[in-house]
């Protein structure tokens, strides 16, 4: 677990693939997501338990949404793992985006380990409500 997070931290979390392999394999966790679309845009909700705001990295460009985060949990000294469902300390997942989404206006919030990302559609793709004026 230790080495995994070390390797992960030294990598540049840039625009390249999320699953980076540098000799040593980095084991990542796939966060579970809900993805919802309405006329305004797309909302992604991801479970990232153990990730604090300062260890979270959300990137969106024209082509891709990248979600990455490091798990930091408080562990006493001399602790030995007895059982572990969670066997890595880094979450990573990415999604390909399409052109009608306006990644520059992406908004993200994190609460109790739940990340919510909203990517609005470009205004020309939003259904426009036309007001009827009464003369």
């Amino acid at each position: 677990m230790e080495t995994t997070s070390e390797v992960a931290r030294t990598q540049d979390a840039g625009t390249s693939a999320v699953q980076v392999k540098t000799g040593e394999e980095v084991r990542t966790l796939m966060p579970l997501v809900d993805i919802f679309e309405d006329s305004e845009g797309i909302t992604v909700e991801a479970d990232l338990p153990g990730v604090a705001k300062d260890r979270l990295n959300v990137q969106a460009d024209r082509h891709r949404l990248i979600i990455e985060g490091d798990v930091v949990i408080d562990m006493p000294e001399g602790m030995e793992a007895q059982y572990a469902d969670v066997q890595a300390t880094r979450y990573a997942r990415s999604f390909a985006l399409s052109g009608e989404l306006d990644a520059e206006r992406t908004e993200a919030s994190l609460k109790d380990g739940v990340l919510t990302v909203h990517i609005p559609k470009r205004s020309e793709f939003c259904p426009r409500k036309i007001e009827v004026r009464v003369s």
Binding site: G50, P76, M79, E80, V86, G113
Partner: peptide
């Protein structure tokens, strides 16, 4: 996790 002093249980329950 267990140490001689205590047992630590972590539940990963976001939200």
């Amino acid at each position: 996790g267990a140490s001689p002093e205590r047992v630590d249980v972590y539940l990963f329950g976001a939200g």
